[in-house]
């Protein structure tokens, strides 16, 4: 049985906005699934339909084998859901928030105390358990929110941009936790604005654009589809016309096959090709011979940023953020 089986999922709002247009999603049990897309692509609408918060206007959704429309309560019992906006009761203490969630999901009374202790300890709020949530920082509230989403040990948990707005340390801590619950057998359905996050965590990824899935696969598969390594060449910013000339030279050099993507970038030129590593030097020589001043260069493996650029035509879902840990780009080498 798959954790999620959605076929032809459609969601059209009353004002006619087609937020989701025929999405097919299959998430096997135990997967760490990443759902990516630019803002407004339909990520949150999809996740809300899967979590029974929105009723699909077309298609079928089964979560843990339960039909989301015919049997929403069975779905609700079997999922954890963490909304994009942090959801905690500011007037209750951290402990009371987790306790309320335990009661809402019917965690047996005998297990509650140890469950609350464990979860608070886990998200490092054990010392702050008696403080009202309104006194918490954004990161602490988010961690508390995670704890409340998992009180009933759901087989699948939906995380809608769980790390947005967190500092790297807090983000790392959540990653560690998400990996752990996934390793324990919980299916994770994650949306994120940070491609490095998806790369670091996810075993499967789907990219949604304008309400439709435009790419699916493991991060490695998707990167492979980019079509090779990426050669980035920086040019003298003073000679702005050089970029077009350099692109022209690269295209005509005959070094790269027809699949190569040659793009003029802000800082110069980027060539994506299976032969980028092999013939990169030759291109640099050709540029020098043509009098183009190269101020820097770098050959790297493709990242999810390149995947994202290729399938959506946008550089990043959101403005770039400081990476949570090191630079994911370095890891592929």
């Amino acid at each position: 049985m798959n954790a999620i089986d959605a076929t032809g999922l459609e969601l059209t709002y009353a004002d006619g906005t087609e937020a989701v247009r025929g999405v097919d999603l299959t998430v096997p049990e135990g997967a760490f699934f990443g759902f990516l897309g630019p803002n407004g692509a339909g990520k949150t609408t999809t996740i809300k339909a899967l979590a029974t918060l929105l009723r699909p206007t077309g298609g079928r959704v089964a979560v843990n084998g339960f039909d989301a429309v015919a049997n929403p309560r069975a779905v609700r019992r079997s999922i954890g859901y963490m909304a994009q906006e942090t959801s905690v009761d500011p007037e209750l203490t951290a402990r009371e928030n987790v306790k309320f969630a335990c009661e809402a999901y019917g965690v047996p009374r005998a297990e509650r105390r140890s469950r609350i202790d464990d979860l608070l300890d886990l998200v490092d709020l054990a010392d702050a358990g008696g403080k009202p949530a309104k006194a918490f920082s954004g990161g602490m509230k988010k961690r508390l929110d995670v704890a409340t989403a998992l009180v009933h040990r759901p087989p699948i948990v939906f995380l809608d941009e769980p790390t947005t707005g967190l500092d790297p340390k807090a983000r790392n801590r959540l990653w560690e936790y998400f990996r752990e619950i996934n390793a324990r057998g919980t299916t994770v359905f994650l949306t994120t604005q940070y491609l490095a996050e998806a790369d670091a965590l996810c075993s499967e990824i789907s990219v949604i654009l304008n309400g439709e899935i435009v790419a699916s696969g493991s991060p490695e598969e998707l990167k492979r589809r980019v079509g090779g390594d990426v050669l980035e060449i920086e040019l003298d910013p003073a000679a702005s016309a050089d970029a077009d000339r350099a692109a022209e030279i690269a295209r005509r050099s005959g070094l790269f096959d027809g699949n190569a993507a040659v793009v003029a970038t802000e800082s110069g030129l980027s060539v994506t090709s299976a032969e980028a590593k092999r013939f990169g030097t030759d291109l640099l020589v050709a540029l020098r011979d043509a009098g183009v001043v190269v101020t820097g260069f770098n050959v790297r493996s493709p990242t999810l940023d390149d995947v994202f650029l290729a399938v959506t035509g946008e550089a990043e879902p959101e403005t770039a953020e400081p990476e949570a840990e090191g630079d994911s780009r370095g890891r592929g080498r």
């Binding site: 079997s78 047996p108 057998g185």
Partner: peptide, 8 residues
């Protein structure tokens, strides 16, 4: 480990 459905 995950437990299936919450009792409610």
């Amino acid at each position: 480990s995950p437990r299936g459905s919450a009792p409610g």
